[in-house]
Design a protein around this nucleic acid. Structure first.
Lengths: 232, 232
DNA sequence: GCTTATTTTTTTGTCGACAAGTAAAATACA
DNA sequence: TGTATTTTACTTGTCGACAAAAAAATAAGC
């Protein structure tokens, strides 16, 4: 847990980037709970650096919607908006489809190789029953597909949605049964084959099915969840 | 041109926001040319405030892709990537369609009223032959439609694309002939009527036509342009 | 005892200064 | 004169400090 480093030991210019990635990870795997305040001074002490690079990281996170800055008050980790989850599902499904279509059209051999690597990581995580690793590697797999689509606009939205999804899945990872992830591994394999064949329509259909399945799973998890998450 | 203000006269917390909007406007209407460096110190002198709020604004702009930060070197206004313009057109068309569809479904009376206001502004700009105002008000019109769609993910991508488009249109605004914008006014009116009727499919079709028309116009302007914009 | 007003504390927003790093200028050299 | 090297100047990244604002704590009034 001790994430310390003398400031002089770090390279100049890497400070804000480091804080950004640390905070981002903490937010996405819910180490920092939604709604919890982020104290700049405590953070600066923990990471042993000045407040300036920390503020820079917070500004970046804010413009990505991961934290919310209350003027003259503490910035807090953004809440998960359960009421409007359907907008997330809608966008996620469309972005899966669009990026997968483009990937089927424009991918190179190098892209496919990278995607296969991600798929290996994902399969390994499923094999090891490591839910957190599953979530993270699944994100990387789809991020790689989106990258192969070569449209930076779609790609950035897709990344944002994947991050949000990572947070959401993390909330319910305990409930994962062992069967569904294995299906995902197969689905991913199927998808890779379709990309390689450059079958755009089939890739689209697969992406849609895959997205719908994830959406239904999350919805089921939410439905069976007994907790109150009105104010989360 | 003199954008000065004693720092003590401004409200606390508004500094970065102010710098952000000033810089953003300058970038989007090409007052700051793509590729031109942004000197933090000169900016801090011009706006008479410290470098801190200026850096904050730059970080925000960077995460929106409007400026590019070169480590330990000056940040520059992001270039327009002419080679991959098709990715922009593709995303723009899809976002027009998606947000318009959603607006047709979910808009309220208040949304329609706001959209009509924007349309009035746009019509006035066309009437006045004010190309810059046309560009800005057209952006606001479509931003309002996107807002009525009530999907923050689509909305934010749409806003980003509209901004990029504003920059692109600004490049060629001299070439505008007077006829096309008038058509746009009518198209907008048509679109509003379709939204009010909640005719999703027709709204989608109109959005696609509208987007294609703008794309073709920009492509025509680029094609007839004699300048070299390889390195822009 | 509870509400309201005042003081104290905490936290943010801004500032000026300094150090590390880069580009340009000046110098040395072939 | 052209090239390589050192020096200089400038710009960014980071820091600690201070001031404004909000939250918390304390005191006063009913």
């Amino acid at each position: 847990m001790s994430s310390k480093a003398k400031s002089s030991e770090r390279k100049r210019g890497s400070g804000a980037q480091y804080v950004y990635s640390v905070l981002r990870d903490d937010i996405l795997d819910l180490t920092l709970a939604p709604g919890s305040p982020i104290d700049e001074i405590r953070l600066s002490e923990r990471l042993s650096m000045s407040r300036t690079p920390i503020r820079e990281a917070l500004v970046r996170l804010a413009s990505e919607g991961l934290v919310t800055t209350l003027p003259n008050r503490s910035t807090v980790v953004s809440n998960i908006d359960f009421i409007n989850l359907h907008t997330f599902f809608d966008a996620m499904t469309l972005m899966y489809r669009v990026t997968t279509r483009l990937a089927a059209q424009f991918h190179t051999q190098a892209d496919l190789a990278a995607i296969r690597l991600r798929q290996q990581d994902f399969a390994a995580a499923v094999e090891a029953q490591d839910a957190l690793a599953m979530i993270a590697t699944n994100r990387e797999f789809h991020a790689e597909v989106a990258r192969a689509g070569r449209n930076p606009y779609y790609e950035s939205l897709c990344l944002r949605l994947l991050d949000e999804g990572r947070r959401l899945l993390r909330l319910y990872y305990q409930s994962f049964d062992d069967q569904l992830p294995r299906e995902y591994v197969e689905e991913h394999e199927h998808l890779i084959a379709t990309l390689e064949a450059r079958d755009v329509e089939k890739a689209d259909a697969l992406a849609k099915t895959h997205a719908d399945q994830i959406v239904h799973q999350i919805q089921a998890l939410i439905a069976q969840d007994r907790r109150q998450h009105i104010d989360l």
